[in-house]
């Protein structure tokens, strides 16, 4: 017997691993746009309503949604007025990233970045201080509003690169926190 043609589902299907802080979804997209999430085929549709809003439709669920932010493979999606942050990875990049995290584990340092350009009003932590996740670190004034910058990790404040009155640009490293978990 000579097989001349055999359909294949996996060959050119692209796999993604889409992760948030809490959740992980495996998404497969075939060239024909057959979509599987966690191995289940989903019949989804994205449509623009007559009201001008964009909707995602799955069965009898229909939700308004928009992409609030995308930067490289990091997304903030707003759906039903609720926002979700996701990072889209390929299986290779996902595994490599895990490797990388292991390598960099020794110096697990969290850089506290300025989320927007502004002026430092007040420091709420000092070098050497122990901080818990979600503790406020400093107050940054931007666009006439005072914003509390909080830490995402627990640890020790290793270094403070700024002082009150400094102007900072977006993504400047304000403080370095050594993770002690």
């Amino acid at each position: 017997m000579n097989i001349l043609f055999k359909s294949s589902d996996s060959a050119s299907t692209i796999k993604y691993i889409t992760i948030s802080d809490k959740s992980k979804f495996e998404v497969n997209i075939s060239p024909e746009n057959i979509i599987k999430v966690n191995k289940k085929v989903l019949n989804v549709q994205i449509e623009e309503g007559t009201d001008g809003f964009t909707y995602i439709v799955l069965g009898n669920l229909k939700y308004p949604m928009e992409i609030l932010e995308r930067s490289q493979n990091k997304y903030t999606i707003l759906i039903n007025g609720v926002s979700y942050k996701f990072t889209v990875e390929t299986p290779i990049s996902f595994n490599r990233k895990k490797h990388l995290e292991k390598i960099l584990d020794g110096s697990k340092k969290e850089d506290v970045l300025a989320p927007m350009p502004g002026k430092i009003i007040e420091l709420l932590a000092e070098e050497g201080a122990a901080v818990k996740e979600n503790d406020p670190l400093l107050i940054l004034e931007a666009m006439k509003m005072e914003n509390e910058i909080r830490t995402h990790v627990s640890g020790i404040v290793k270094k403070i690169n700024i002082k009150p009155g400094d102007t900072v640009m977006k993504d400047d490293v304000l403080m370095e926190i050594e993770n002690n978990n």
């Binding site: 493979n73 390929t90 990049s93 490599r96 993504d171």
Partner: peptide, 20 residues
């Protein structure tokens, strides 16, 4: 990458991983 993207201006684009 962050040093050259923010401080020196040597890098024009920085990305989080190689694919991107």
């Amino acid at each position: 990458a962050p040093a050259h993207a923010k401080k020196s201006g040597v890098a024009h684009f920085i990305y989080e991983d190689e694919e991107n």
